[in-house]
Amino acid sequence: MIGRMRILGPTLLIMALLLIPLLLIAPSGAADEPLEFLSAQEEQRFNRLIEELRCLVCQNQNLKDSDAPLAKDLRLQVLEQMRAGNDDAAVKQFLVERYGDFVLYRPPVQSNTYLLWLGPVFLLLLGGAIVYRTVRRHRDGDPDREGVQ
C-alpha cells in the first residue's frame, strides 16, 4: 500500500503540473468579451434585456445565450443604448427598427399576431368543449358505448 502511494505521489504531481498551462489558457477565452458594468443594477437590467432579444444567427437562442459574433456585437449595442439613457422600450425599438419584430422573444400583440396570442386560448376552449361533450354523453349513457360494455 505504501509502495503504491510512493509511485502514485509523483505521478499525481506530474499530472497536476501538466494541468497548469490549461489554467493559464482557460480564462483568456472568457475574457473575450470584457463587458464591464457600472453597477449591479445596470448589469441586472442588461441581463434582463438580452434575455428578451433574439439572436438573428441562431434563431432559437436569445442574445444572452448565443456565442455568435453578431450576438456579441448586438449585446454591445444594447449596453451602449442603455448608457445613452434610453429606456427598455427604446433599446428594443432600436433593434426592431433594424431587424423587425422578430428580434423580440415576446412578440407584440397586434393584428398579425392575434392568432399567435389567442390561438392557444381558442384551442383550449375547443378541447374543453369536446371533453365536456364526451364526458356528458358517457354519463347520460351513449347507446353506442353501452353496447360495447
Binding site: L56, V57, L70, D73, Q77, R98, Y99, G100
Partner: peptide, 12 residues
C-alpha cells in the same frame, strides 16, 4: 466594426 451593417439589419 460592423456597426453600419447592424444599421442595415445585416445578420449574416
Amino acid at each position: 466594426t460592423g456597426r453600419t451593417s447592424i444599421d442595415f439589419g445585416v445578420y449574416g
